Amino acid sequence: MRKVLTVLAMLMAQPLAAQDATTAPGGTLRVLDKITGRTHDLELRNGETGTVGLLAVTMMECRFPTGNRTGDAFALLSIVYNNEPDPVFRGWMIASAPALNALDHQRYDVWALRCSSE
């Protein structure tokens, strides 16, 4: 029994294998203007910038689990407010967990919806 527990402990201590991801040509983001209550969907290609009000959102990359295009989207974004020199957000957003790494802004919410197929 002790050997079994030792082997289980060793297996559990091993890092999990990383999930393979495929880069899509772009993706869809949703932007909520908290003042007006309106939502806007931005369909952007990688490297493209879209604007909603005073917000400029650049999608640098969109990834999805290999073999599961409809699976979770991971979007690498840079978000600038009112042409400020520094972005208010720069990082990965995950479609299934938008609060994990969210834009912290008084007027806008942004979250990833899906990666595009073309």
Rank of each mutant, 00 (worst) to 15 (best):
residue 6 T to L: 15
residue 98 P to A: 06
residue 9 A to V: 11
residue 56 A to N: 14
residue 111 W to Y: 11
residue 22 T to S: 14
residue 42 L to N: 05
residue 63 R to I: 00
residue 12 M to L: 15
residue 48 E to T: 06
residue 105 H to R: 03
residue 18 A to I: 04
residue 8 L to A: 12
residue 79 I to H: 01
residue 29 L to P: 06
residue 109 D to W: 11
residue 3 K to R: 12
residue 50 G to N: 02
residue 54 L to R: 12
residue 63 R to K: 14
residue 109 D to Y: 07
residue 43 E to C: 01
residue 4 V to A: 13
residue 118 E to P: 01
residue 54 L to K: 13
residue 8 L to V: 09
residue 84 E to W: 04
residue 20 D to C: 11
residue 10 M to F: 14
residue 110 V to G: 01
residue 7 V to Q: 12
residue 7 V to M: 11
residue 105 H to G: 03
residue 84 E to F: 07
residue 9 A to W: 08
residue 49 T to R: 03
residue 20 D to E: 15
residue 23 T to G: 01
residue 15 P to W: 07
residue 89 F to D: 01
residue 110 V to I: 08
residue 36 T to L: 07
residue 14 Q to V: 14
residue 32 L to Q: 04
residue 80 V to A: 02
residue 31 V to Y: 03
residue 65 P to M: 08
residue 15 P to C: 01
residue 29 L to W: 05
residue 79 I to D: 04
residue 75 A to I: 14
residue 42 L to M: 03
residue 15 P to N: 06
residue 115 C to W: 05
residue 19 Q to P: 00
residue 53 G to D: 05
residue 63 R to Q: 15
residue 118 E to S: 13
residue 36 T to E: 04
residue 20 D to L: 12
residue 35 I to T: 15
residue 118 E to I: 11
residue 74 F to T: 10
residue 30 R to L: 10
residue 72 D to R: 12
residue 109 D to M: 11
residue 91 G to P: 01
residue 60 M to E: 14
residue 23 T to W: 01
residue 95 A to Q: 08
